[in-house]
Amino acid sequence: MKKFLLIVFVTVLITTVSSLGIFAQEGAKTIAVIVPPVENPFFGTMQEIAAAKAEELGYKTIKLVHDDDANKQMELFETVIAQGVAAIILDNAGADATVAAVQKAKDAGIGCFLVDREITKEGVAVSQIISNNYQGATILAEYFAELMNEEGKYVELTGKDTDTNAHIRSQGYHDVLDQIPGMEMVAQQTANWSQTEGYSVMETILQQHPDIKGVICGNDTMALGAQAALLTAGRDDVICVGFDGSDDAIESILKGELKATSLQPVAEMATQAAIQADLWIRTGSTGKPEKQSIDMVLITPENADQYEKFAPKPQKKD
């Protein structure tokens, strides 16, 4: 009988959990929101904001995660297309490998609204709403140089080599820093966007170059990892800056650890994606060009307390 109970148990588990909601609103159109692993608060917040806006506009939502796996992303696309979603909001799993999936949605008459990351082909997605990574990188690099008094050795931690954003950000940093004669880059290493790798890579670099004055990172998680390594080594004099503007980074800036970050207008992008998806579903057009870029904001200890969840705080308190 034990065996039978087990099967019953599993079935009951599946049925009870699934009856917790989801089917509440019948008839409403559905928008799928597909993002990279939500362990990174950046994507989690983006998904929540986009889904909340879509629900506010009267849609049902399905929230999914593609784990940066293009094959899984394709499978998710096929599944939601078969389920008849009206639109897909997507932060994709690779500029090249995503084109086929977005094309498939387009062929099925479903609009894709890309946020944060672009794809290499135009005319497939309805909108590509991206933050101006290059502009964000240059303002951050300018502030970084200012903090270092425009001279000294520094290290750069770059993101995943396969990610276009890693290259654009690095390009932005160097277009500023390479113009300043006193700034010397002694090491450039990838930490694959990861906090753990940021920590271990920083430890290694510190062994080789104990005389560094600053660290500029391709995102916040790597910066937080590097910062932890610097603190462990007792090097709180080293200037460390990140990129993205996550709540963790802002908290660190307020504590006086990280010195700056560039804030991604995640809330703005996610909200825009939902609004444009709604417009497109109702009228067949967003009235905007496919590629839209939104400027980033420099976060320093002076303004860090005014931002949370990738957006300016509501101004009620003042």
Binding site: I14, I22, T79
Partner: peptide
């Protein structure tokens, strides 16, 4: 695929798969 259709979170999907 079923859990995806029902809109389960990835975390819960993994828990169920494991069980």
């Amino acid at each position: 695929d079923g859990l995806v259709v029902l809109g389960f979170s990835t975390f819960l999907q993994n828990v169920i798969k494991g069980i």
